[in-house]
Protein backbone atom coordinates (compact mmCIF):
# COMPACT_ATOMS: atom_id res chain seq x y z
CA UNK A 1 0.00 0.00 0.00
CA UNK A 2 2.67 2.49 1.08
CA UNK A 3 4.92 1.73 -1.84
CA UNK A 4 1.98 1.88 -4.25
CA UNK A 5 1.13 5.26 -2.79
CA UNK A 6 4.59 6.60 -3.57
CA UNK A 7 4.53 5.06 -7.01
CA UNK A 8 1.25 6.91 -7.51
CA UNK A 9 2.87 10.19 -6.50
CA UNK A 10 5.82 9.63 -8.77
CA UNK A 11 3.85 8.61 -11.82
CA UNK A 12 1.56 11.62 -11.28
CA UNK A 13 4.54 13.96 -11.37
CA UNK A 14 5.95 12.23 -14.43
CA UNK A 15 2.63 12.53 -16.23
CA UNK A 16 2.48 16.21 -15.27
CA UNK A 17 5.77 16.70 -17.07
CA UNK A 18 4.51 14.86 -20.16
CA UNK A 19 1.27 16.84 -20.24
CA UNK A 20 3.21 20.09 -19.81
CA UNK A 21 5.24 19.24 -22.90
CA UNK A 22 2.03 18.37 -24.73
CA UNK A 23 0.45 21.71 -23.76
CA UNK A 24 3.58 23.64 -24.71
CA UNK A 25 3.76 22.04 -28.15
CA UNK A 26 0.16 23.02 -28.80
CA UNK A 27 0.73 26.51 -27.43
CA UNK A 28 3.72 27.01 -29.73
CA UNK A 29 1.79 25.62 -32.68
CA UNK A 30 -1.10 27.98 -31.94
CA UNK A 31 1.28 30.90 -31.63
CA UNK A 32 2.70 30.16 -35.05
CA UNK A 33 -0.24 28.90 -37.09
CA UNK A 34 -3.58 29.83 -35.55
CA UNK A 35 -5.59 32.79 -36.85
CA UNK A 36 -4.65 35.06 -33.94
CA UNK A 37 -1.66 33.56 -32.12
CA UNK A 38 -3.87 31.30 -30.07
CA UNK A 39 -6.04 34.14 -28.83
CA UNK A 40 -9.64 34.87 -29.71
CA UNK A 41 -10.04 35.95 -33.35
CA UNK A 42 -10.92 39.61 -33.67
CA UNK A 43 -12.97 41.73 -36.08
CA UNK A 44 -11.90 45.26 -36.89
CA UNK A 45 -13.62 48.24 -38.45
CA UNK A 46 -11.54 51.17 -39.73
CA UNK A 47 -8.58 49.77 -37.83
CA UNK A 48 -10.42 49.56 -34.52
CA UNK A 49 -11.20 46.27 -32.77
CA UNK A 50 -14.97 45.96 -32.50
CA UNK A 51 -15.38 42.42 -31.26
CA UNK A 52 -14.52 38.76 -31.63
CA UNK A 53 -15.46 36.65 -34.64
CA UNK A 54 -16.94 33.83 -32.66
CA UNK A 55 -18.43 35.71 -29.73
CA UNK A 56 -21.83 37.27 -30.08
CA UNK A 57 -22.48 40.77 -28.82
CA UNK A 58 -25.55 42.78 -27.91
CA UNK A 59 -27.16 44.97 -30.57
CA UNK A 60 -29.98 47.33 -29.66
CA UNK A 61 -29.82 50.12 -32.27
CA UNK A 62 -32.16 50.15 -35.24
CA UNK A 63 -29.29 50.67 -37.68
CA UNK A 64 -27.95 47.21 -36.84
CA UNK A 65 -29.13 43.65 -37.25
CA UNK A 66 -29.88 42.04 -33.90
CA UNK A 67 -28.71 38.72 -32.55
CA UNK A 68 -30.63 36.21 -30.49
CA UNK A 69 -31.94 36.70 -26.95
CA UNK A 70 -29.20 35.91 -24.42
CA UNK A 71 -29.56 34.56 -20.90
CA UNK A 72 -26.06 35.89 -20.23
CA UNK A 73 -26.69 39.37 -21.63
CA UNK A 74 -23.76 38.68 -23.96
CA UNK A 75 -21.29 38.80 -21.07
CA UNK A 76 -18.46 36.79 -22.57
CA UNK A 77 -16.96 35.83 -19.23
CA UNK A 78 -20.18 34.29 -17.89
CA UNK A 79 -21.66 32.11 -20.63
CA UNK A 80 -25.07 30.68 -19.83
CA UNK A 81 -28.26 29.32 -21.34
CA UNK A 82 -31.66 30.06 -19.86
CA UNK A 83 -32.16 26.41 -18.81
CA UNK A 84 -35.89 26.92 -19.07
CA UNK A 85 -37.96 23.78 -19.56
CA UNK A 86 -40.32 23.62 -22.55
CA UNK A 87 -43.53 23.71 -20.49
CA UNK A 88 -42.49 26.34 -17.95
CA UNK A 89 -45.40 28.84 -18.01
CA UNK A 90 -43.32 31.83 -16.90
CA UNK A 91 -40.87 31.08 -19.69
CA UNK A 92 -43.61 30.72 -22.29
CA UNK A 93 -44.95 34.11 -21.19
CA UNK A 94 -41.48 35.58 -21.79
CA UNK A 95 -41.42 34.12 -25.28
CA UNK A 96 -44.84 35.64 -26.02
CA UNK A 97 -43.57 39.00 -24.79
CA UNK A 98 -40.54 38.72 -27.09
CA UNK A 99 -42.78 37.95 -30.06
CA UNK A 100 -44.89 41.04 -29.39
CA UNK A 101 -41.79 43.23 -29.03
CA UNK A 102 -40.31 41.81 -32.21
CA UNK A 103 -43.52 42.56 -34.10
CA UNK A 104 -43.60 46.07 -32.67
CA UNK A 105 -40.09 46.68 -33.99
CA UNK A 106 -40.87 45.05 -37.33
CA UNK A 107 -44.45 46.17 -37.99
CA UNK A 108 -44.31 44.96 -41.60
CA UNK A 109 -44.09 41.30 -40.52
CA UNK A 110 -46.87 38.80 -40.13
CA UNK A 111 -46.84 36.83 -36.87
CA UNK A 112 -46.19 33.64 -38.80
CA UNK A 113 -42.98 35.17 -40.17
CA UNK A 114 -41.31 35.68 -36.78
CA UNK A 115 -38.44 33.16 -36.61
CA UNK A 116 -38.43 31.13 -33.40
CA UNK A 117 -34.69 31.56 -32.88
CA UNK A 118 -35.17 35.35 -32.53
CA UNK A 119 -37.44 34.84 -29.53
CA UNK A 120 -35.66 31.93 -27.81
CA UNK A 121 -32.40 32.24 -25.88
CA UNK A 122 -29.27 30.60 -27.28
CA UNK A 123 -27.46 27.84 -25.42
CA UNK A 124 -24.29 29.79 -24.68
CA UNK A 125 -25.81 33.24 -24.39
CA UNK A 126 -23.08 34.20 -26.87
CA UNK A 127 -24.45 32.83 -30.13
CA UNK A 128 -22.69 34.88 -32.80
CA UNK A 129 -25.04 33.80 -35.58
CA UNK A 130 -28.59 34.03 -36.83
CA UNK A 131 -30.24 32.14 -39.68
CA UNK A 132 -30.50 33.83 -43.10
CA UNK A 133 -34.26 34.00 -42.56
CA UNK A 134 -33.75 35.91 -39.31
CA UNK A 135 -31.55 38.40 -41.15
CA UNK A 136 -34.03 38.89 -44.01
CA UNK A 137 -36.92 39.70 -41.68
CA UNK A 138 -34.87 42.54 -40.16
CA UNK A 139 -33.91 44.13 -43.50
CA UNK A 140 -36.90 46.48 -43.56
CA UNK A 141 -36.13 47.97 -40.15
CA UNK A 142 -32.40 48.37 -40.77
CA UNK A 143 -32.93 49.89 -44.22
CA UNK A 144 -35.42 52.40 -42.87
CA UNK A 145 -33.15 53.41 -39.98
CA UNK A 146 -30.28 53.96 -42.39
CA UNK A 147 -32.36 55.69 -45.01
CA UNK A 148 -31.44 53.07 -47.58
CA UNK A 149 -33.60 51.01 -49.84
CA UNK A 150 -34.33 47.41 -48.88
CA UNK A 151 -32.59 45.97 -51.92
CA UNK A 152 -29.20 47.45 -51.03
CA UNK A 153 -29.34 46.09 -47.50
CA UNK A 154 -30.58 42.72 -48.69
CA UNK A 155 -27.66 42.48 -51.10
CA UNK A 156 -25.26 42.91 -48.20
CA UNK A 157 -27.05 40.20 -46.24
CA UNK A 158 -26.83 37.87 -49.23
CA UNK A 159 -23.08 38.32 -49.34
CA UNK A 160 -22.72 37.48 -45.65
CA UNK A 161 -24.60 34.17 -45.76
CA UNK A 162 -22.31 31.28 -44.94
CA UNK A 163 -23.45 28.14 -46.73
CA UNK A 164 -23.53 24.68 -45.11
CA UNK A 165 -20.23 22.80 -44.97
CA UNK A 166 -19.36 21.81 -48.58
CA UNK A 167 -22.88 22.94 -49.39
CA UNK A 168 -24.12 19.66 -47.92
CA UNK A 169 -23.77 19.41 -44.17
CA UNK A 170 -25.32 21.52 -41.44
CA UNK A 171 -27.36 24.71 -41.40
CA UNK A 172 -26.57 27.98 -43.24
CA UNK A 173 -25.95 31.01 -41.05
CA UNK A 174 -25.08 34.69 -40.88
CA UNK A 175 -22.55 36.11 -38.41
CA UNK A 176 -24.31 39.14 -36.94
CA UNK A 177 -21.18 41.13 -36.08
CA UNK A 178 -19.60 40.60 -39.49
CA UNK A 179 -22.88 41.53 -41.16
CA UNK A 180 -23.11 44.77 -39.19
CA UNK A 181 -19.47 45.59 -39.84
CA UNK A 182 -19.94 45.08 -43.56
CA UNK A 183 -23.00 47.34 -43.40
CA UNK A 184 -20.98 50.05 -41.68
CA UNK A 185 -18.19 49.64 -44.21
CA UNK A 186 -20.55 49.87 -47.16
CA UNK A 187 -22.90 52.54 -45.99
CA UNK A 188 -20.89 54.74 -43.68
CA UNK A 189 -17.45 54.71 -45.26
CA UNK A 190 -16.31 57.68 -43.18
CA UNK A 191 -17.30 56.06 -39.96
CA UNK A 192 -19.77 58.74 -38.87
Amino acid sequence: MKSDFFKSLKITLVFCVIFSIFALILWAFAHAFSPNKGQVEIVTLHGKVVGADNVGQAFHKDVYFWGRPSAANYQADASSGSNKGPTNEAYLKDVKGRIDTFLLNHPYLKRSEVPAEMVTASGSGLDPDITPQSAYVQVGRVAKARGMNDEAVKAIVDKQIEKPLLGLFGPPKVNVLKLNVSLDKALRPNGN
Partner: peptide, 21 residues
Amino acid sequence: RITAMGIDQHQGAMEGKEVRL
Protein backbone atom coordinates in the same frame (compact mmCIF):
# COMPACT_ATOMS: atom_id res chain seq x y z
CA ARG B 1 -46.26 25.17 -27.05
CA ILE B 2 -44.31 27.67 -29.15
CA THR B 3 -45.81 26.39 -32.41
CA ALA B 4 -49.18 27.21 -30.83
CA MET B 5 -48.08 30.85 -30.63
CA GLY B 6 -48.28 31.00 -34.41
CA ILE B 7 -44.67 31.84 -35.27
CA ASP B 8 -42.18 30.25 -37.67
CA GLN B 9 -40.47 27.35 -35.89
CA HIS B 10 -39.14 25.41 -38.87
CA GLN B 11 -35.63 25.56 -37.35
CA GLY B 12 -36.77 23.31 -34.52
CA ALA B 13 -36.69 23.88 -30.77
CA MET B 14 -33.98 26.53 -30.56
CA GLU B 15 -34.17 27.38 -26.86
CA GLY B 16 -30.74 26.48 -25.47
CA LYS B 17 -29.31 25.71 -28.92
CA GLU B 18 -26.93 27.44 -31.31
CA VAL B 19 -27.60 28.53 -34.88
CA ARG B 20 -24.27 27.31 -36.31
CA LEU B 21 -24.99 23.77 -35.07
